[in-house]
Simulated assay, not measured.
Amino acid sequence: MAHVLVTGGVRSGKSRYAEQLLADVEQVTYLAAGYPTGDDPEWNARVAAHQLHRPASWRTVETLELAQGVREADRPVLIDCLGTWLTRTFDTWEAWEAPVASWEPRLNREVAELASAISAHPSDVIVVTNEVGWGLVSEYPAGRIFADHLGRLNQVIAAACDQVVLLVAGRPITL
């Protein structure tokens, strides 16, 4: 059993690497936070490309309820990805313009529940996320909120995992 956080920049090969970790497993629950939307054809094409890489025997669950999805899975789990989950969660909560204090306690609870579910899962859990903080601090409040909270989220989930792998130009570096 392995609990692995796979992190890296956009288009670094994170998802493909995470899928390869479970390539020999016939039944996987794939928790997808980046599901198609009706109004963004470019995003929908990205989602479709990701779907093509998954074996037909894997069960895809498009959800923002990641902790619940991990708890309910009776097989290995792949979560893709925490950055998309955080964005979708903020959208759902209308958090981008709201005072941080109005939603941060709820976010902290959900992150703690996810970390607990990952730690307790009796099978493999592979979690994909984006690495943040290697560039300039955003001039926009939404960018700063996202980077700050994804960075914290990544730290909590990394602590719940046995291993962290950084992908750079498609190459894994075990941390």
Rank of each mutant, 00 (worst) to 15 (best):
M1H: 07
V4E: 03
V6Q: 00
S12K: 08
G13K: 11
G13S: 10
S15Y: 12
R16Q: 15
Y17T: 04
A18E: 05
A18P: 09
Q20H: 14
A23R: 08
E26T: 13
Y30R: 02
D39I: 07
D39V: 07
P41Q: 10
P41L: 10
E42I: 01
E42W: 00
R46I: 12
R46Q: 14
R46C: 12
A48S: 15
H53C: 00
H53V: 00
R54C: 02
W58E: 12
R59A: 11
V61H: 07
V61L: 15
T63R: 04
L64H: 13
L64E: 12
A67F: 11
A73L: 13
P76R: 05
D80V: 01
D80R: 03
L82A: 05
F90N: 03
E94F: 00
A95Q: 03
W96S: 12
E97R: 11
P99F: 01
V100S: 04
A101M: 01
S102K: 01
L107Y: 14
L107R: 15
E110V: 04
I118H: 03
I118P: 01
I118Y: 02
I118T: 04
A120H: 08
A120E: 14
H121P: 13
H121C: 13
S123R: 14
D124N: 14
D124C: 08
V127D: 01
T129P: 10
T129S: 15
E131W: 14
V132G: 02
G133S: 00
V137L: 15
E139H: 09
Y140C: 00
R144G: 02
H149C: 02
G151I: 09
L153Y: 03
L153C: 02
A158F: 08
V164W: 05
V164P: 03
V165Q: 06
L166M: 14
L166I: 08
L166A: 05
L167C: 07
V168K: 00
P172V: 01
